[in-house]
Nucleic acid binder design. Structure first.
Length: 201
DNA sequence: TACTAGATTATCT
DNA sequence: GATAATCTAGTAT
């Protein structure tokens, strides 16, 4: 259904995290898991984490064991565990050694809905399956063992299905961080029911 | 509907 | 020993 031959390639991910975070809104994320199930969703919410001038970025203190995937060449998957409970999924951006990434915060499920429901038995509504970074990782079954995977592989890739209109993309402050709070680096699809943090305002 | 507490662990200081 | 790019259940309103 979603074709690897149309997918974003290695060079695409060497662009800036601000550009990619915005550009990926509306794109389709595809993951063929170890059991042969295809899981896919439309990206509706992202956040950029910069290499310089961004104290909220994991890369800000410099290279460590945890953040080392952020310093890989763009196109790697960076997975980390947060609050001892949840996993978060990032797309590494820019060139090797730079240290930037885009956090994928939410998606609208398109394919593999049964599998997502199985991964999240308490989630009733389809549009809430991948709402929020922790939920998204759980629905897709991503854990630390998927860290450093390449995003331009036949079983893991992103396709730009169609262009998303400028006015459909909203910008705002990032969620859940304590430093560099005011940077406008969160992007989300206007009116999507799968965007997280909509209950507050 | 709105707020708060608690879960739970890899990683860093 | 402290912290964290979150989520959910529970209690209060």
């Amino acid at each position: 259904m979603f074709d690897f031959s149309n997918s974003l390639k290695e060079d695409y991910y060497c662009q800036s995290p601000e550009f990619i975070a915005r550009d990926l809104i509306g794109a389709v994320f595809v993951w063929k898991n170890i059991d042969g199930f295809t899981l896919a969703g439309k990206i509706v919410e992202t956040e950029a984490y910069l290499a310089v001038g961004d104290l909220a970025s994991h890369s800000a203190p410099g290279l460590t064991k945890r953040n080392s995937p952020m310093f890989m060449r763009g196109g790697a998957l960076y997975v980390y565990k947060i609050y001892g409970v949840h996993h978060c999924i990032n797309v590494v951006t820019e060139n090797e050694g730079v240290g930037s990434a885009v956090l994928i915060r939410a998606m609208e499920p398109l394919e593999g809905i049964e599998t997502m429901h199985r991964n999240r038995p308490n989630c009733k509504h389809k549009l809430a399956l991948c709402k929020g970074p922790g939920n998204l990782a759980r629905a897709f079954g991503f854990t630390l063992k998927h860290n450093r995977l390449q995003l331009y592989s036949p079983n893991l890739f992103i396709v730009k299905h169609s262009e998303t209109a400028e006015e459909e993309i909203q910008t705002g402050k990032r969620i859940g961080i304590a430093k560099s709070v005011d940077l406008p680096l969160r992007f989300f699809l206007r009116n999507s029911k799968s965007v997280s943090g909509n209950s507050r305002k």
